[in-house]
Design a protein around this nucleic acid. Sequence first.
DNA 1: AAAGTAAATAAAAACGTTTTTATTTTGGTT
DNA 2: AACCAAAATAAAAACGTTTTTATTTACTTT
Lengths: 356, 356
Amino acid sequence: MAETEKSDRRELSPTIKTLAAHTGYSIATISKALRGSPVVAQPTRDAIVAAARELGYQANARGMALRTGKTYRAAVLMPITSAAGYEWDGVEYTQILSGISQALEGSDYQLSVHGFRDFGDAFDTARRIVDQSAADGLIFSGVQADDPRIDMLVESDFPFVSLGRCRKPLIYAHVDVDNEWAAFTATARLIAGGHRRIALINADRRLSYALDRIDGFSRAFNEAGLAASTDLVAGGDLSTRFGRDSALRLLGLPSPPTALVCINESTTLGVLSALGSLDRRVGVDVDVIAYDDINVSAYFTPPITTFYQPIELLGRKLGEFLLRRMAGEDPAKLAMVSRPELIGRQPDNLGGRNRR
Amino acid sequence: MAETEKSDRRELSPTIKTLAAHTGYSIATISKALRGSPVVAQPTRDAIVAAARELGYQANARGMALRTGKTYRAAVLMPITSAAGYEWDGVEYTQILSGISQALEGSDYQLSVHGFRDFGDAFDTARRIVDQSAADGLIFSGVQADDPRIDMLVESDFPFVSLGRCRKPLIYAHVDVDNEWAAFTATARLIAGGHRRIALINADRRLSYALDRIDGFSRAFNEAGLAASTDLVAGGDLSTRFGRDSALRLLGLPSPPTALVCINESTTLGVLSALGSLDRRVGVDVDVIAYDDINVSAYFTPPITTFYQPIELLGRKLGEFLLRRMAGEDPAKLAMVSRPELIGRQPDNLGGRNRR
DNA sequence: AAAGTAAATAAAAACGTTTTTATTTTGGTT
DNA sequence: AACCAAAATAAAAACGTTTTTATTTACTTT
């Protein structure tokens, strides 16, 4: 009973030493064999790999991390909804994370999520990740026109990929939607449909892509030889409430819009709600063009014409670019700017009444 | 020029040795002082803490991890949307992650996200996390009636909190919505409004909470002395398309429902879309009651009566419970089942025409 | 004042790797 | 046969902690 029945009690997972004892090779050789170093002879490698498989050996991540200084983590910055009263803002982190996660599958990297509350907090979190090397790479969105995170990360040569571009001429890996083009195209379509007073339900002006959208919006008017209805641009959080409130306010103006461009589906839903309560019909009294987040615009009543944005694909690209960046690839080669695809779902010219 | 100008070139972050050299104490004392061990004298502790602050010392996470065997990570299992054609399913991981992240703020734990594709994959991922101790604790949702993850985790005494309960009498930390009660209450409300043919747009029957909803649905009929319209229960993914298709199918039956209970906002939107295309009006021809995810039902046209589920709060509880569980607290004490709050937004009795 | 004890600190070991350096083995050349 | 280089493997060091064990210092007690 009190014999030698202790060592086989706890099924501790095998370490490199276990493998050394089992194969007769030194831990150095084993490490090299499993890491694919060319200095170890082929038969030796085969024997070690076989033994590793047999014992179910998995290199301890903590040991590796300490020795190599790597963390095998990819960090993602995610905004945290502030305190009480959650309001949907259409920012689809579920899809983004899903895409990144897919890209990381099969790699040695794990995804870690860091919440932040505001711009300052986001910067501090990014800095902390770099300083403590809490991750080997970073992904973030919500890029500001003059985003200090980008300067800091470029400066410290930390691998990162941003969803969005800042307005400074720096070289860094990024994925973005061609927001200028998207806003231009939507606005031009409405102008062609006869609209002259067009509203833009836009994001907070501190965000780089909000400015891009305004640029495209204005260019559409300029190219048509018209003055842009910039007085009808509303910027704010992208909640449904913001969409509703903005629409109610704009439609109450002395010279109200005859069409609205909505920057995402959340605000679109709010706009539709406002139109409903004002008893105005989409496609008859007012036209609406939007951008997809969760692809539910087809189910709105009536279905809304949107630009489809493949958010999950953007997520995958973010992950893929980060892997390549962490592997040392030149950031200049890691850039993708995608153009959303128009999905027309109803006429955008007030039922033809306004066409000229 | 070639003097001693090398050591101050790279601003390496200070280690415990740096601190030892700087204060004159040994690394052992420093570790104890900073970890709050009572054996170190107060003046010593003060001096060390001061020096640590001055040098900006932060214990290296990898060193700690290796020595203690802990990872300082809380893992979350997140479903990955399968390949092409994203469909919103209303499962709000953004909010859940946000809540968990808030709970973890200030603790030493970081959030790591692990994607999975199906039930089997989720189990394998959970197992891997346990086997490799890739995290110190685990959170997951999508609990099946007979969820093998729960058995495995209970068996191996790994700290975890589930969002949802399985149907086996095991003791484990969990957070859940009282789905039986929620379905009962919604159904009873409709029955009281005069409805007899009620549809339930439900989740996949493999999910524990889908069964709970059916239970509550049936109980409402039973307590009213009626036969439950179980032929009108539709189970599937929670996409908007599923909601729409289900509604179209059910309303085309010889004996169609006069009211629908929708399990989330995604399916609700699909149901409303179906009603719109069939030219049936909510609150006039058909009644709808739903459950909130992203709280946009107020913006539907017309606004829909819903049960409000504080998803972010559930997320915070998940995080809080996990922290307490990882600290060794008894899982029997870590249980919360919340009852959603009814927010009436329109009459649910076919405009009163059906009341008896 | 010497001895004993408690308090405080220091030294050493260990966690599991990878990498650098050292040693042994092999095979070819003279 | 002796030597040398190259190939293969082993040994040792290091990464930064925490924890166990050892040593020193400071008080009490007699």
